[in-house]
Design a protein around this nucleic acid. Structure first.
Lengths: 343, 343
DNA sequence: GAACCTTACGAAAACGTTTGCGTGTGGAAA
DNA sequence: TTTCCACACGCAAACGTTTTCGTAAGGTTC
């Protein structure tokens, strides 16, 4: 069990100084060709790799981007990470990922840990609990210490920083419009409680679409779900014997659960009831019937977020003071869970 | 845009030495109560946080576990990460996750990056490409430098280290046995090409189960799929007009694709054909019909892997030289895609 | 032989910590 | 008055780098 070899050890073995070794490895002309070759051969032999920790300490930057997401078992977030990694790797940055598990405390801990040396900047989607608590001191502090933060998807209006979002309301409107356009009129919505920003926005989009069609909003057709993990019973009760011809679900799980429940209740999707979801994940794609949905283009979000962050990291201080919000277009992906034509 | 505050700055402001500040913050009795309070008040005001980089450099350990997985958009791996995080957090370790995207090069880069200072040890499931290339120098080097590595799921027999696996063959045998026990006799298998270790093992388990029932192995019932992303056409062609009463799929995607294809071909699951999958993911749970499958207990794997790693990290050197392989039990999760009783 | 220039290397500081040990000050004991 | 001991604090080394600057040895020029 050898230890990692350092400059000092090489220097000692070769009976030269540490600086000579360092320079030789960098092919500095200061060092004679002879010595350079000797050092490099030795370094290769012992598989010398500079210690990143020491470098980070010295350079006061880590060339690492920290990504903190609420749930790692969530397809959308992982596609975002894919986008981040793509850009980061191109620009010579590494990416480290932490999950907050939707816990405020874990979000704080992770952020502080990464902020105290491990990363130069952050790409962050806040935990559900954080949105509920409205406690953003950890994010403020991080920014105050000069580390740029880019918020995405679940953002916080009160925080001034770069942001990458989709137009949730517009996406929801598009979804609802699609249902309307194929002739549905009695459209239920399965959404989250209001403190989840994206849920609320999507609900708004739904309402806006209805109004544009002069359809009266009906409280009885709106279900706000708190406990996502046990939504089946709730959705089942809600949908039972309800006179509807379409369901708009603000996420994938609600959508497939609705499909399942309707199926059990003897309704046929999409003939009796059309279903449209949000987020183009594995479930939507492989479900039977496959689900019409709104794609959030997660990878794009990641790409844009990473670009914003790296711009800030590498920009001269002049540009540093302005913040941008990038809005990613959503798109409708038509599949089998909605009717094709007007009846 | 303030910079991070350091001990030195606090020392300067308060006109004491750096060591005094450091000791005061640690409540050392060496320092007078008065000074201690003053320092602590000041530190709190300026939100002092020790710089982890400096600490890592000094202590020559990072208290961080590096996890490298082939695909982050994969439910099984994310559950493993959950388990790792659970144990790690209990023991005061942080977890950083990198994905190799199944690329050998990215695996090497990530490992080397983390190995050169960012993590004390690794939990690793190797990339597909690495299994194909059989080039493990990066792992060997990491271990040679004294950093423990725990391999899980997609392991490498040639590397001597701690490992956490499931008994893939046994799990596959259990799956196949279940099909046999409910009366299926013409059982097809959808598996991967042989260089994927888990695919091969599961194929073996399937064959073993058949043999135990004295059923002749039939090449025509075995499909080895190379290109996972475009498996639908392949599966569809394979299954077309085939006289079978069950399908065992070595992963979730193959299982749902089979269900879909059979559905399109007018077969009813499970009445005409039973399907059993491997890995208890989102798809299996929410699909209609929900899929009977073999659970790999990903979180358990993560827990065990993290424990093994931390043992090595904190163990005295005596125990360091022995390596253990933990085999996690699989279990059968019965759902709707298999028949309930013998016909 | 003196003044100067190259060449080739080493010393040291810096990044931010922790910690063992040295030391100045003041008061108490003798 | 001298000796001793707590007390409260500072010094310096160490972790592994990079980089600026200094300098010895040897050669060249006049």
């Amino acid at each position: 069990m050898k230890q990692k070899v350092t400059l000092k050890q090489i220097a000692k073995e070769l009976d030269v100084s540490i600086s000579t070794v360092s320079k030789a490895l960098k092919d500095s002309v200061e060092i004679s060709l002879d010595t350079r070759q000797k050092v490099k051969a030795f370094a290769k032999l012992y598989n010398y790799k500079p210690n990143n920790i020491a470098l980070s300490l010295k350079n006061r930057k880590t060339k690492t981007i920290g990504v903190i997401i609420p749930e790692i078992v969530h397809h959308f977030f992982t596609t975002v990470i894919g986008g981040v990694e793509k850009v980061a790797n191109e620009k010579g940055y590494n990416v480290i990922i932490c999950s907050s598990n939707n816990s405020f405390d874990k979000e704080v801990i992770n952020l502080e840990m990464l902020a105290s040396g491990s990363a130069d900047g952050f790409i962050l989607s806040v935990a559900k609990e954080t949105q509920l608590k409205k406690d953003y001191h950890h994010i403020d502090e991080t920014m105050n210490q000069g580390m740029p933060v880019v918020l995405f998807d679940r953002i916080i209006d009160e925080i001034v920083c770069d942001k990458v979002i989709i137009d949730d309301a517009k996406g929801a409107q598009t979804a609802t419009n699609h249902l309307l356009s194929v002739g549905c009129r009695k459209i239920a919505i399965l959404t989250t409680v209001d403190y989840i920003s994206v849920g609320k926005l999507r609900t708004n989009g739904y309402l806006r679409a209805l109004r544009a069609y002069d359809i009266q909003e009906d409280e009885a057709l709106i279900l706000k779900i708190e406990d996502i993990d046990n939504c089946e019973a709730e959705i089942s009760g809600f949908l039972k014997d309800k006179d509807i011809d379409a369901v708009f679900a603000v996420n994938e799980l609600f959508a497939v659960t609705a499909a399942k429940v309707l199926n059990e209740q003897g309704k046929i999707v999409p003939d009796d009831v059309s279903i449209i979801g949000f987020t183009d994940g594995i479930l939507s794609k492989h479900f039977i019937p496959s689900l019409t949905t709104i794609s959030q283009h997660g990878e794009d979000m990641g790409v844009r977020a990473a670009k914003l962050l790296i711009d800030k990291l590498e920009g001269d201080d002049a540009a540093t003071e302005e913040y941008r919000t990038v809005i990613i277009d959503t798109s409708l992906i038509q599949r089998q869970s909605t009717k094709k034509t007007k009846k």
